[in-house]
Design a protein around this nucleic acid. Sequence first.
RNA 1: GCCGGAGUGGCGGAAUUGGCAGACGCGGUGGAUUCAAAAUCCACUUGGGUAAAACCAGUGCGGGUUCGAGUCCCGCCUCCGGCACCA
Length: 956
Amino acid sequence: MALHSLHMAENQTPYRYTAALAGDIETRWQAEWDRLGVYEVSDPEPTADRSSLPPKFYCLDMFPYPSGAGLHVGHPEGYTATDIICRFKRMKGFNVLHPMGWDAFGLPAEQYAIQTGVHPAVTTSKAIENFRRQLKRFGFSYDWSREFGTIDPDYYKWTQWIFLQIYDAWYDTEQNRARPIAELVEAFENDERRVTLNPFAAEYAGAGDLPGGTHAGPWATLDEETRRAIVDSYRLAYISLQTVNWCPKLGTALANEEVIDGKSERGGYPVFRKPLRQWMFRITAYADRLLEGLETVDWPQSTKTQQSEWIGRSEGAEIDFPLLDATGHKTGETLRVFTTRPDTIFGATYMVVAPEHPLVDEAISAEAGDTAALREYVAAARNRSDVERQESKEKTGVFTGVMAHNPVTNEPIPVWTADYVLMGYGTGAIMAVPAQDERDWDFAKAFDLPIVRTVQTPTDWPEDKAFTGEGSAINSGFIDGLGVADAKQRMIEYLEDTHHGQRKINFKLRDWLFSRQRYWGEPFPIVFDEKGHHHAVGEQTLPITLPEMADYQPIESDDPQPLLAKATDWLHTTAGEAGVADLPPDAKVTREANTMPGWAGSCWYHLRYCDPKNGERMVGEGPESYWMRGGVDLYVGGAEHAVLHLLYARFWHKVLFDLGHVSTDEPFGKLFHQGLILSHAYQRADRSLVPVDEVENKGTDENPEHIETATGESVTQIVAKMSKSLKNVVNPDDVIAEFGADTFRLYEMYMGPLEQSKPWNTRDIQGMYRFLQRVWCLCVDEATGELRVRAEADADIEKRLHRTVDKVASDIERLAFNTAIAAMIELVNAGTKLAEKDGAGLTASQMDRLARILAPFAPHMGEELWSRLGRFESEGSIARAEWPEVDPAMLKDDQVEIPVQIKGKVKARIMAPADADAKALEVLALQDETVRSLIEGQTIRKVIAVPGRMVNIVAG
RNA sequence: GCCGGAGUGGCGGAAUUGGCAGACGCGGUGGAUUCAAAAUCCACUUGGGUAAAACCAGUGCGGGUUCGAGUCCCGCCUCCGGCACCA
């Protein structure tokens, strides 16, 4: 019986917009779009006149790492947003480049391989298949003909090629750009450039080379080893024995940026400091340009701030403090410090060096102070992990026994070592000015060191606190009375005149650790000869592909080994085979066994999309200069990439720009971060979290009482990240099966502003489903499938339609999809009401326009209506239709309702001509019955009338 | 601690430039339809107040500027994100 009546109902409305019908429409059109290549975009024909090229819009999503778990609901949020904009821009006549691909090298596939022995390529390609299937099911308008993955040899061939470009480049600080290394050698040979180690080379920091450099002598007189060392010190990619962040659990070293609170960013595993021979990128050479470039791009302010703080430029001075011997005489040696407050040097009552500072070792060997205590302290500091350092900021330290000479007070001051001074920043040594620095204050108090105030404190300043603010210099000799800024200038001039120091700019940014000890990454295009010298492989041998491995288990060792070291056949080759020109062909060479980090592939994928099939170049000049003009026009992705990916990609791009391979200095013109899609979970009184399936609501929806089933304790509902453990993960496939892709897209866009993080509420999806049902029902007879066309346009609907077209367009431009959808809902609701009354609400022309403005949001519904209107047959896909025209006259009303306030509160409403001026509005308002009765007997003090807005009468 | 961002009905949110607070959706209540239910459609839905209105209060809290403040200014509170011994 029940089954029978169900069939009856279905048969009465066979064309009802159900999930089944939606699924049918959607998959049908997806196949058709694929077949016709509707979203494929071709590069413009080369032309001399660039202004005649069609306007372009390059819209890029941060490509996903294809995990085995498939898409989660966070992925489609940004992808739907860009899809809407791309579809809109196409309708507005833009040539739209909207590509998709895969960031497919990385740890999860390799860790899976360690456990199962399945090759990462197998796992990854399966995951890519699944991701592609899922993305296609959303109807995104990607140009799939441009798809690639970072693991494709055709792609990583060029990743390796770019590495070689960087390796073969140096940074010319005079021209402020990178240049080929050959030009440096040439300049040395021709004696056009002083032959020195690169004074900015971080790997030689502390070597004591002065800016300007120590002259090594004429190039011709130098031996091969020295020449090599000098050239290498300039390369933008170099090898350095570095204390790195070694993560045993991941079996690899990590970049500073990948370590958070002493744990790995990925996985949260402990990280230890360990010296390793590593490839580094001299990103610090670009510190200033990376900073300046931020001012030229349209990026979220918070991201620009994060990057600029990461780069951390600070201006100050380097000062040399002469060291004293036991008798108080100058030894001739100096201790160099960096300070941002040279004005406070009169208050420098002691100095501190990092425990790793060479002076400490010297003090130990010279037995100047308490050697045992020093040794112990240095050992303890070395073992003290970053986590422990975070935990306690209690000041510890030991006197080194070394005394220095304050060059302005001419007083002897002690040199201490303490771990609150970091070896990696500045010179690893400071002049301590306790009165003007809180850390120095704490240290001075802990060890009873003298404190001299050199900046006048405000009258109410406590006695027991450092003062870091603005004030006049005191106890400071020749700079007394000057403000901080003037005092700094004056002091730097003095130091320069007396050769005690010079102006200096320091950055927090460190060179970028670029090698990893894993398998599943790009191999370096580098081999080592028998002397251990590195050589670039010949370009013609690229790509250097990964060898097959018997197993992926990391080599367990205290001395960490890269995994590829196990692939001995691959590892050992000859110079001839590797294409190394400057060695005899039969010379034995060993391949670099480290691999590149996951960031490598994502540093330049935005370029490859412009010309993904090019076998001759990483990107052709024509496509690159067309699509990349002004940078990517819109780049959308998560804010978690604010420093890592976005900084690295900018660095690569700038190097490529300097070397003439790309035409723009900045890769991403406009950047936008979508918010996170969150979910719900519950929290106990002790703030621990409870999975959603372990809680019941014993109250009502309005007055919920959430009770943990197991304990009967009351818990509070909170917004939390989706996670397996909280059982609150939503699977997009399920949602599409239940409602269709169009509903899913609308729901995610309707949740709220794109940039905001917002909780997923499965219940709310219903609203968008109903909306699409109403659209369908307004246009299509559910019983017959015929269009419900109205003969004569309703004037009100026509006016609303124009306004909606206008609002949706401007809302899309400002990425406010939620309000655009709200406007369409209002239009459709009005149409539905009219249809209830008259049998049909829209004319064919109105339906057509509704379909077109809806199409960017719900492309399948749009295309289906478009097709039913006969337009697909004659004109092709709605994707290539024009955005509807707006008649400006339709946006204006003759009469408008104007609220009338009395003393700021709305008391009445009057109808007034839309163009009524202030005077006319005032007259009309004062004529109004309600207004007159309310102000009766009162004096009108003032009337403010804003044409088209409101009238405010101040009376009393 | 420092630097960002945000706090609006039961919930997600709207108010784009200082000008009608709460658009639109969810949920809820009532109704239509149905033997019934689901689905759908219609009406109402910030709180207090009232038979209904009037009226009063109201955008985290306390002040201020203004004819008028969610929006601007000052001082707090809370939450989220980032940085954190960087001299």
